[in-house]
Design a protein around this nucleic acid. Structure first.
Length: 405
DNA sequence: TCTGGGGTCCTAGGACCC
DNA sequence: TCTGGGGTCCTAGGACCC
């Protein structure tokens, strides 16, 4: 999709059209640009840029917080259009998808006509512009859809992949970022064509497994990793995490504890949504100087219970926090397994009761919103006066710190 | 330029096992 | 007693993507 977040904002507020718009937050907030309109890009504003920098470059821009739910809804609409077109669809992100249209020629016509039909269908049903790249490989299609922006369709004929890529900067290859670009530049490699001319053993020696894949990519092959896999459902997530950057750095133990509590609940909720259980709990923290640490612990069983995630997160935090002010804190669940994790027998009764309570809490959140219900610890500092010891007696006996309010 | 939040994949060292 | 080779799992960090 072209300038996706901005375009969705324009859909809901047409007065934004044609103006410099920055999605990501207010200019005095900690944060970065999620998306910038083409008018804002003219001033040098681009995604991932700090909001304060964007403001300096383009103070007249309209800064909006954004509406993640709307983006998700529209993304689903796009997905529906694509699925009607071909069953082999893979959403690669909220605004990007791959379609395998092998053998649909009798249905949709030759590639160019098929792409234009799809382009029109998306415009008609979502009122949004997109760009389409057509080729024999995922990698080439992605690069060529980027080249087709805005609102274009581009087809790289079979056999022309390497010739299409050769004049482009190496940075255009997905997976080549700032660091790789700099390492390649040191070797005098700036264009994809330079890369394609080198022999594979040299690239492997220089960059390991990645170098080898890179050699293939430069020639237009889906060499190695994700690009190599067939188009289709990507399957279960491998990790689930939530993190939070404070408006101002804090060393307030209560606030940090409340954050860990809230983040653990969000992670637990998403685990239950997916039917996944986590064996590894990891916390992340970042100090004022931006130094960032992660600390992990792997359990002997898998869990999806908020209080258990929280207990691990808290214990990791208490053991490793230096006491200095913190900018960011996060909770991460990894080593995910599907279905029932083996609960220790002792905990079985305990987890059953929590299971029921958590299901009820999730249902309330579905109905009334994310902040409808939470662990008492997570409310501390937000609704201090409302926190009593286990007001509804759920689900433990008597007062307890982690009761559900 | 004062740097979000959600992910994936890779590397490297160490513990541990046979 | 100076010490192999293969494997797996765990942990920490980092590059990269949208």
């Amino acid at each position: 999709m072209d300038a996706f977040f901005v375009s969705v904002e324009e859909l809901f507020d047409p007065s934004l059209k044609g103006k410099p718009v920055v999605v990501g937050g207010k200019p005095d907030q900690r944060g970065v640009v999620s998306a910038a309109s083409y008018a804002a890009r003219k001033f040098g504003v681009h995604s991932a840029m700090p909001l304060r920098t964007a403001y300096k470059l383009c103070p007249q821009a309209i800064f909006v917080e954004g509406h993640p739910h709307r983006y998700r809804d529209v993304s689903r609409q796009v997905h529906d259009v694509l699925r009607a077109f071909s069953p082999l669809v893979e959403m690669a992100s909220i605004d990007e998808a791959y379609l395998d249209v092998t053998g649909t020629e009798r249905l949709h016509g030759p590639p160019m006509r098929a792409a234009h039909r799809l382009h029109e269908a998306i415009k008609e049903q979502t009122k949004l512009n997109c760009s389409i790249g057509i080729s024999t490989a995922r990698l080439v299609s992605k690069v060529c859809s980027d080249q087709a922006k805005p609102n274009g369709v581009l087809w790289v004929l079979p056999g022309c992949e390497a010739r299409f890529l050769a004049p482009l900067d190496v940075r255009k290859i997905p997976g080549v970022g700032k660091v790789m670009e700099a390492s390649l530049a040191k070797l005098g490699i700036r264009k994809v064509g330079d890369l394609a001319r080198l022999d594979e053993p040299f690239l492997e020696e220089q960059f390991g497994k990645w170098g080898l894949a890179l050699a293939g990519k430069s020639k237009g092959l889906d060499a190695g990793g994700w690009f190599d896999s067939p188009v289709g459902d990507p399957g279960d997530p491998k990790s689930i995490s939530h993190e939070h950057t404070f408006d101002q750095d804090t060393a307030d133990r209560e606030r940090l504890g409340a954050s860990l509590s809230h983040l653990s609940e969000m992670v637990g909720r998403r685990l239950r949504e997916h039917g996944l259980w986590a064996r590894t709990v990891q916390i992340k923290f970042r100090y004022s100087d931006f130094s960032t640490f992660t600390r992990a612990h792997t359990l002997d069983h898998a869990t999806q219970i908020d209080t258990e995630l929280l207990a691990e997160a808290k214990s990791l935090f208490d053991r490793h926090w230096s006491g200095k002010p913190i900018r960011l804190i996060g909770v991460h669940a990894g080593n995910l397994v599907r279905g029932e994790g083996q609960m220790s027998l002792l905990d079985q009764g305990h987890s059953d009761r929590w299971g029921k309570a958590l299901a009820a809490a999730d249902a309330m959140r579905d109905k009334y919103g994310e902040s409808a219900v939470g662990l008492a610890g997570g409310l501390r500092g937000r609704f201090q006066e409302r926190v009593h010891e286990n007001p509804v007696g759920l689900p433990g006996k008597g007062p307890r710190k982690d009761s559900l309010e």
